[in-house]
Design a protein around this nucleic acid. Structure first.
Lengths: 144, 144
DNA sequence: ATTAATTAAGACTTTTTTGTCCTAATTTAA
DNA sequence: TTAAATTAGGACAAAAAAGTCTTAATTAAT
């Protein structure tokens, strides 16, 4: 469904959000260990998330990655997916047709649209705060 | 969402079904032209679909690919997706965790499950006959 | 101002997916 | 039975995705 980069990006964002509740910055090293992902590759993804203004980075001593505390609840899963995988997953045709639309639909169009819309709604209505709080409560997990 | 191979496989199956209504076999050459896909690559996918008993092949003069007329309505999109992409798309974790389940869910688990189930239901409730008939009626299209 | 710590960036490698091409095996029709 | 037509399969090539490594640039703390 999502690329590996996107999966890591979501898990990373949640972990950073969790730490940003307490104003604590995280390093790629700690992060990769906590979410069980390849460190250098994950670091690249963090860079992309910074460029897309999903997370922030602070260089130098005591630096690391963080998310503005006030924005944690405003960042949606769709922001992360958009930043890494783009919007093809909830805009593109299920059969890969470039020109598929209401006027010239592919055979799967109507039925697929329902699923795609549901995915879109789900991603747009889920924010980082909710996800990070579930982790904090011990109800959900970021690794294995 | 689906791999290119799977997209081609679905489009190919629909086109073969459409032709099999009239007992007409199709060659990889004609097929690739009609669904606008790379011919040799599509041929490989057809082989896989034959191995998974989704379509049939007949060698020699006047041979080609076909689908048993009586089975067209029993073949579901999920049969094709299973054959080519496997079941990860509607069984796997949205965040890529191997051990994600009800007991140890990832943060996206509950919300993603709903989407995944909807996708599964859609694929399992859509058969080749319906899709091919829509093409025949000129309501839907297989290329561009 | 200096330095140590840290992210940013680019070049590179590996793996997977996508795609091509050639030949072998089969089989149907004549 | 033969020959032409056709699928099956393997080896290969190209492109994209995933992943690594080294160095440059930045910056916060002292």
């Amino acid at each position: 469904m999502f690329s590996k980069a996107c999966e890591y990006g979501i898990r990373a964002s949640i972990f950073i959000a969790l730490n940003s509740f307490g104003g604590r910055r995280v390093s790629p090293k700690e992060l990769a260990a906590e979410i069980d992902s390849p460190q250098a590759f994950t670091a690249k993804i963090l860079q992309a998330l910074v460029r897309h203004d999903v997370i922030q980075s602070v260089k130098g001593a005591y630096g690391g990655f963080e998310i503005d505390k006030n924005r944690i609840k405003t960042i949606k899963l769709s922001d992360i997916v958009d930043a890494i995988d783009g919007d093809n997953i909830y805009k593109g045709c299920g059969l890969g047709l470039k020109a598929c639309d209401e006027d010239r639909p592919c055979p799967m169009h109507d039925k697929f649209k329902v699923v795609r819309e549901e995915l879109k709604t789900m991603l747009e209505s889920t924010n980082l705060e909710t996800l990070a709080l579930d982790i904090k409560e011990g109800d959900t997990f970021l690794r294995r």
